[in-house]
Design a protein around this nucleic acid. Structure first.
Length: 886
RNA sequence: GGGCGAUUAGCUCAGUUGGUUAGAGCGUUUGCUUUACACGCAAAAUGUCGGGGGUUCGAGUCCCUCAUCGCCCACCA
């Protein structure tokens, strides 16, 4: 292959499109039980089946892919289990919307069976887009194992778990206070409620005593719920009201007498000390109601409009309309005392833009207390480690206060609860995998289970549980879970509980919590804000490798990422740099084919620069492995970037141009070293940038057509760092010296291309020998005409002025004679010095004049001050240059 | 109310167990068609490490405190 087949700039598009299908065809991603290898497995956090790829997924899946590819290269048998989640409420809403729009039909028209059939149809046709998109990112998922949370096998797992927990007494059906979403018309778990601080009003009402002896004052933020009031509570110790306990008030607008009860819940120090009690719509009131045996009056329809338990003119009104009308009627009745503006936290439905309702309803619950115990122990003992570790605190806080989990949902898309009611026998309940074979009219529960009730089984259900599969035996428990901290309760904690309960074994050893991606202004990425870039467009523009590398490169550890597309230039430019380093090597000749291990002769004859480069690279190999062990992906990319760009390209390639130019054995050796180093770099980089590394490894002739870098051994230490510490320090010193020399040139406005002479005064005998041995290299790197090296100071008396710079290896001098007219330069500087001194003196006087400072516009004063500072600096530089000139 | 995190260059962020002169990328300035790369090369400028106090020979790093911002949880008749 000749060099002109490598374009000047790296073009990722076709190369990425070429490799991925090849990898997949060759089943490189597939893992199966293999006794000769150690297993390494990861389960993907299943994206919603309705989902499309977002930057969050990009980050998350890039990290998983890095781990998988790294371990594959380390010789593990790797399987990354992919799949999607049926996402009950979200998908049902999505398909419902689709059907309304396209066919003007929906749930209510189609009926349960047909609707579910249509959801499946939609899923087959439009679902799983994200799974295809993950391929463009380079994700090395074991696609043969792709699962869906509603697959038959996973449904079996869900049923088995439900029945088992029911039989253990953990799952029960009961009438409890729950969160109700009026849009989904379903119950939600506590975790699905999002609290937002919103402006609201606090209404103070009079509730007249039934005996006409006066009234009590109650306050509420929810006037419309008063139709569900079944008591007013006062504190039994409250001297103002204790004599009223047992009497009644007339509930306004309904004229229904309700009792005054004495209860601790009423706090005498708050408001009037009287509390209206609405057991059906407030968690505290529900408890009060239980204590006093109060009626529970649900006043709402499923869509949160008021029902027929309310006065006629309110029936059917939306809750917010009803609120206004209630207040109006109370005011008309002279029962409104005042309205205060307040800010309070209101619970919103996770999906909808609407406030949830708390109301009492019959639902299925799972008692989590016992399940939580081993799960807490698993993290406390360190069997499961969290990265960053601080999330354990959040985990324990939630687990220690864990509440019963409301698992039933009043929707159709999901796992239907395996419970049957005997309509002939007072709704006797049977729970089991199928309809009971017992007499009676048995009807299955209409409700389905919370989506997370299948997700929490994912790490083992995806491997075939409850069947005893080879995958389960070999790959469980998985190695690392990579996910966002926002689902620590929804998913992570529950998976740990499920693993401990049903597998008697933790589901993963590490949990790595990713950052949340925000836009440049720090806002969350969202569709409605339009600030959410489409990763496919980004990949199109910059390449998948560039996106992967950049997003890891900019991800601060454990904090939010501020992302913008321009940041992908980091990865794109880096890929281009690497491409051109390889292109340069190709221009020197064909691969040496000895790169896999340097032969002893080459090792014995390494130049100082080569020792330096191979030593630094060896050090990188070690540090990247350490970083990956600690999930410090960001540090790993920074170190690789620095080594490739600054050390390999800026210094080493430049230095190697010398031996390459010389030819003969020098050139041969240099090419071998370049090959050896490049192949090590490509392999270290492969987990991060899979496409370009595969392409280059082949372009460079490091691999045959039937080979892949995916299975090349990840570089281990070759001992060249430990062996060359001294050589590394010396070369670092040499490069410092070169840098100082270049700076001297720039200071005197000598163009890069201009060949000048330098003098080096070595710091000691050893350094003298080193500098002399490296004279050619130094001349080359400085682009110098001639460099004299000795232990002697530069003789400025004899040879004219020469500014110098002190370095570790010695002092570098730039003789100016012949380059610039010293006398003329000196005169120019003296003139400049005088002008500056005059200006500075005048300006200082001006600034010391209080009248100027106090009366001149602030901007003028500030400008004067900054100009002064600038000129003072300029003067300093001038003085320093004058000193150099002698 | 409880918890967690952040505050370092114009911007985005590194800074490992305290240890020479606090770093990078982007941006800015200057100069470069140097036998890979302008998606490039060389050089340069820029910091009260949020404020205050303390521990220490030594603090960006540890402790206390205050301030601001963000997130999570709980509560709110």
């Amino acid at each position: 292959m000749s060099n002109n087949e490598m374009p000047k700039a790296y073009e990722p598009g076709n190369i990425e499109k070429k490799w991925y299908p090849l990898w997949e065809e060759r089943k490189y991603f597939h893992g199966s039980a293999n006794k000769d290898k150690k297993p390494y497995s990861i389960v993907i956090p299943p994206p919603n089946v309705t989902g499309i790829l977002t930057l969050g997924h990009v980050l998350n899946n890039t990290l998983q892919d890095i781990l998988c590819r790294y371990h594959r290269m380390k010789g593990y048998e790797v399987s990354w289990f992919p799949g999607t989640d049926h996402a009950g409420i979200a998908t049902e809403a999505r398909v419902e919307k689709f059907l309304r729009k396209e066919e003007n039909t929906g749930r209510d028209i189609l009926g349960r069976d047909e609707f579910i059939r249509r959801v499946w149809e939609w899923k087959e046709k439009y679902g799983g887009t994200i799974i295809k998109q993950l391929r463009t990112l380079g994700s090395s998922c074991d696609w043969e194992k792709e699962r869906f949370t509603m697959d038959a096998g996973l449904s079996d797992a869900v049923q088995k778990v439900f029945v088992e927990l029911y039989n253990k007494g953990y799952i029960y059906r009961g009438q409890r206070m729950i969160n109700w979403c009026p849009v989904a018309k379903s119950a939600l778990s506590d975790e699905e409620v999002i609290y937002r601080d919103v402006p609201g009003k606090f209404y103070h009402f009079k509730y007249p005593l039934s005996d006409g002896s006066g009234f009590l004052v109650v306050a509420t933020t929810r006037p419309e719920t008063m139709f569900g009031d079944t008591a007013v509570a006062v504190n039994p110790e409250d001297e103002r009201y204790k004599h009223l306990i047992g009497k009644t008030v007339n509930l306004p607008l309904c004229n229904r007498p309700i009792p005054i009860v004495g209860d601790q819940h009423a706090d005498p120090t708050k408001g009037s000390g009287c509390v209206k009690i609405t057991p059906a719509h407030d968690p505290n009131d529900f408890e009060v109601g239980k204590r006093h045996n109060l009626a529970i009056i649900n006043i709402m329809n499923p869509d949160a409009s008021l029902n027929d338990k309310c006065p006629e003119e309110f029936v059917g009104l939306d809750r917010f309309t009803a609120r206004d009308l209630t207040v109006k009627r109370m005011e008309e009745a002279g029962l409104l005392i005042k309205i205060e503006d307040i800010t309070h936290a209101v619970g919103y439905s996770e999906r909808g833009e609407v406030p949830i309702e708390t109301l009492v309803s019959y639902q299925w619950f799972c008692n989590m207390k016992e399940l939580a115990k081993p799960a807490m122990e698993a993290v406390a003992s360190g069997k499961i480690k969290f990265y960053p570790e601080r999330w354990t605190k959040t985990y324990f806080h939630w687990m220690e206060n864990i509440q019963d989990w409301c698992i039933s949902r009043q929707i159709w898309w999901g796992h239907r609860i395996p419970a049957w009611y005997n309509r002939d026998n007072n709704d006797e309940i049977y729970v089991g995998p199928g309809k009971p074979d017992k007499p009676g009219r048995w009807e299955q529960e209409e409700d389905v289970l919370d989506t997370w009730f299948s997700s929490w089984l994912w790490p083992f259900s995806i491997m075939g549980w409850p069947e005893k599969t080879a995958d389960l035996e070999y790959f469980y428990p998985t190695a690392t879970l990579v996910t966002g901290p926002d689902i620590i309760f929804f998913w992570v904690a529950r998976m740990i509980m499920a693993g401990c309960e049903f597998m008697k074994e933790i589901p993963f050893k590490n949990v790595y919590f990713t950052s949340i991606i925000r836009d440049e202004q720090g806002r969350k990425l969202s569709k409605s804000l339009g600030n959410s870039p489409d990763p496919l467009d980004v990949i199109d523009q910059y390449g998948a490798d560039a996106l992967r590398f950049s997003i890891i490169y900019i991800a601060p550890v454990g904090m939010d990422i501020k992302y913008s597309n321009e940041k992908c230039e980091i990865g794109r430019n880096f890929a281009n740099k690497l491409w051109n380093a390889c292109r340069f090597r190709r221009m020197q000749g064909d691969a040496t084919l000895t790169f896999k291990a340097l032969d002893t002769e080459t090792l014995a004859n390494l130049s100082d620069d080569e020792k330096w480069m191979l030593g630094k690279l060896d050090n990188l190999v070690e540090s990247v492995q350490t970083y990956l062990k600690d999930f410090q992906f960001h540090s790993a990319t920074h170190d690789i970037y620095e080594l490739v760009w600054s050390e390999f390209c800026d210094w080493f390639i430049e230095a190697e141009k010398q031996p390459l130019r010389k030819g003969g054995t020098d050139k041969e050796r240099a090419m071998k070293v370049l090959d050896y180093a490049l192949y090590r770099i490509l392999r270290v980089l492969h987990p991060f940038m899979p496409f370009i590394t595969e392409e280059l490894a082949h372009q460079m002739g490091f691999l045959g057509d039937d080979e892949s870098i995916m299975f090349a051994e990840f570089p281990e230490t070759d001992g060249l760092f430990a062996a060359n510490r001294e050589a590394i320090a010396l070369a670092d010193g040499k490069f410092d010296l070169v840098r100082a020399g270049r700076a001297l040139k720039t200071n005197y406005n000598l163009a890069d291309g201009r060949k000048v002479n330098f003098h080096l005064k070595a710091a000691d005998d050893a350094k003298l020998a080193y500098l002399q041995a490296n004279a050619d290299s130094i001349i080359h790197l400085l682009n110098a005409a001639e460099v004299t090296i000795s232990l002697a100071d530069y003789d400025s008396a004899a040879n004219g002025a020469a500014p110098s710079q002190l370095c570790d290896l010695g002092t570098i001098y730039l003789p100016l004679a012949g380059l610039i007219d010293v006398a003329e330069e000196k005169a120019k500087l003296e003139k400049q010095k005088a002008e500056l001194e005059k200006w500075i003196a005048g300006t200082k006087a001006k600034l010391n004049n209080e009248k100027f400072v106090s009366k001149a516009p602030a901007q003028v004063v500030a400008d004067t001050r900054s100009a002064l500072a600038q000129n003072e600096e300029k003067l300093e530089r001038t003085l320093s240059l004058l000193k150099d000139l002698g």
